[in-house]
Nucleic acid binder design. Structure first.
Length: 540
RNA sequence: GCCCCUGUAGCUCAGCGGAUAGAGCAGCUGCCUUCUAAGCAGUCGGUCGUAGGUUCGAGUCCUACCGGGGGCGCCA
């Protein structure tokens, strides 16, 4: 258990003692938290327990705080407790307790940072799923990287993850694609709503089939998918599964699912079409399942696809990563899940807000059809894989990012990714130097490590002990960008340590303790970088 | 009109209901004879969109308003 969690437990038990002493009934303590103050004078950790209890007990916070402090001081883990402000309890952790924790960390290795949240459950993350009508653009890169980092996080906390790309290989846009290729081949204008761009010209040169738009479109899909796959690989992303929309339609599952909705009385006929009464299940209006011409709608196919994921393939959890332009589908899909009697908590839909490019202060929207989309390949080539990933992962997907490409490129050598990677590389260099100088290192007994009490060393240790809880939060909130926040702090603290605390030239006991700390830091940096899919470089 | 996201430093963005709101970039000033200066230290820069409310305590929660983005098809 992490130190903060152990402290919270300690605060809880001490609170029970206070209740008993006051002959008061114990009350729930959910509001009690242990946190790390941003100000060093406020201790290594702090709790609001006295203020919460004061409310429950109707006594002044500082009086309660005195009683709590009494009990807390008795614990060996706690070095010092002070009462401050409106009734905060500030703790300082005993150096030997930190040292023991560091020993445990090194003993357990990567596992030290791994909370078992998933318990081996299966989860499918569906992301990218861009129509196979052209190369990925920069906007696709955002959600692709988010989806991959989320998948890495879930894998780390013991989910069995399947990364899936839903291939919309049927329908109107495939006909448009075919029509565009045929038009360019015959030297005609690309039709209204068609696709433009160099790749269309390339395809037109290679296409030797008939003038049937479906044939031409279907012919092009696998070629374009291969381009997409290659782009993803260059971003460090490999899908486990490419799921064809056409295959769902051919399987008969669409009819099956519509029949199931029918059987539960959730559908009705109107104007020659079959409707799903989705409003009864929380949608803003009802939706058509089968058009008056007999074809199923996209939504019907999409419901069948989700039925396939949740029932036929029976993933415990399904996460759809979609662009905010798919917001309109969410309520309909959730309504269908409820109508089919599936536990709605098994489907999560994460909406990523739109990304826009800034060109001379003006926002430029992506349009594949108009040919104004900036290719993702271009961005990766300009910035490199690691800088691209970190740029994308440093902010929340709830925010509509604006990226100034000129600035992004100009800053590529100043990208924060190098700051973080440099910390890792510096440790690698340290360890190489130790090896090449044939220094014998006695790795860390907790006694030796208790000598680590320089402020830089303490800051580093606290970062190490915090990583697990950061990972928990990042997973729970589906927010990989929280890992970036930790990495920046960790890198900053490491560079400060490196600057102020010589390692190899220090006397042997100090040197060995610092080397041990550096090793732990490298381990943690490696875990965090790996969660983001960013390379941990041995040298720079 | 209704629904979702959002508004924090010049720019791009972090920020668990807690104490004196942070980082990177841009600007200014120092620090390489010393384990990698892709670094460290300092400095400049803020009515956290506005107004109410809840709370011992609000950038964070609630309401209204203002601004920005997206969505509301028998398209996919």
């Amino acid at each position: 258990m992490a130190i903060a969690d152990r402290l919270l437990t300690l605060v809880h038990t001490t609170a029970q003692d206070v209740f008993a002493a006051l002959r008061a009934n114990p009350t729930p303590l959910q509001a009690v938290v242990v946190e790390e103050p941003s100000i060093a004078d406020h201790g290594d950790y702090a709790t609001n327990a006295a203020m919460v209890l004061a409310k429950e007990l109707g006594a002044p916070p500082r009086v309660i705080a005195e009683q709590l402090a009494e009990g807390l001081r008795a614990d060996a883990m706690v070095d010092r407790v002070t009462i401050a402000g409106p009734g905060f309890l500030n703790f300082w952790i005993a150096p030997d307790a930190l040292a023991r924790e560091l020993v445990t960390l090194l003993d357990r290795g990567v596992e030290y940072f791994r909370p078992d949240i998933g318990h081996g459950a299966t989860v499918q993350v569906e992301f990218v799923s861009a129509n196979p009508t052209g190369p990925l653009h920069v906007g696709n890169g955002w959600l692709a990287t988010y989806g991959d980092a989320l998948s890495r996080l879930l894998e780390f906390v013991n989910y069995r993850v399947t990364r899936e790309y839903y291939v919309n290989d049927t329908g109107g846009q495939i006909r448009q694609l075919g029509a565009s290729i045929i038009a360019v081949r015959s030297g005609a204008e690309v039709p209204e709503g068609g696709y433009r761009g160099e790749y269309i010209s390339d395809l037109a040169l290679r296409y030797h089939g008939s003038d049937d738009v479906v044939e031409a479109g279907s012919w092009a899909v696998p070629i374009i998918l291969e381009l997409i796959r290659a782009t993803l690989v260059s971003l460090g992303i490999e899908m486990d599964s490419w799921f064809s929309q056409a295959s769902i339609e051919e399987s008969g599952d669409v009819a099956l699912v519509v029949a199931r909705l029918d059987a539960t009385g959730a559908t009705y006929q109107r104007d020659g079409a079959l409707w799903f009464a989705s409003e009864r299940f929380g949608d803003s209006r009802d939706r058509v399942m089968r058009k008056s011409n007999g074809d199923f709608t996209y939504l019907a196919g999409d419901i069948a696809y989700h039925y396939n994921k949740l029932v036929i393939r029976s993933f415990s959890l399904v996460i759809d990563v979609l662009g905010a332009d798919h917001h309109g589908q969410v309520a309909s899909m959730m309504a269908a899940i409820r109508a089919l009697g599936i536990d709605e908590h098994r489907l999560e839909i994460k909406l990523g807000q739109m990304v826009s490019l800034l060109e001379q202060g003006q926002a430029v929207k992506f349009s594949k059809r108009a040919g104004t989309a900036i290719p993702l390949d271009w961005l990766i080539q300009e910035l490199g894989r690691d800088a691209t990933r970190l740029l994308i992962l440093s902010s929340s997907i709830d925010r509509a990012s604006q990226i100034d490409l000129v600035q992004a490129k100009a800053q590529s050598m100043e990208n924060p990714v190098y700051y973080v990677q440099y910390a890792y590389a510096r440790i690698a260099a340290l360890l190489r130097n130790v090896a090449s100088r044939q220094i014998r290192v006695e790795v860390g007994s907790s006694d030796a490590l208790a000598g680590l009490n320089h402020p830089r060393e303490l800051a580093l240790m606290k970062d190490l002990l915090r990583l697990e809880s950061v990972i928990v939060r990042a997973v729970e909130e589906r927010a990989p960008h929280k890992i970036v926040g930790w990495l920046m702090q960790m890198a900053s603290d490491f560079h400060g340590f490196y600057h102020d605390c010589p390692v190899i030239t220090a006397e042997p006991s100090v040197r060995d303790a610092r080397l041990t700390l550096a090793r732990a830091a490298q381990l943690a940096l490696g875990v965090a970088l790996d969660l983001l899919g960013v390379t941990p470089p041995e040298e720079m």
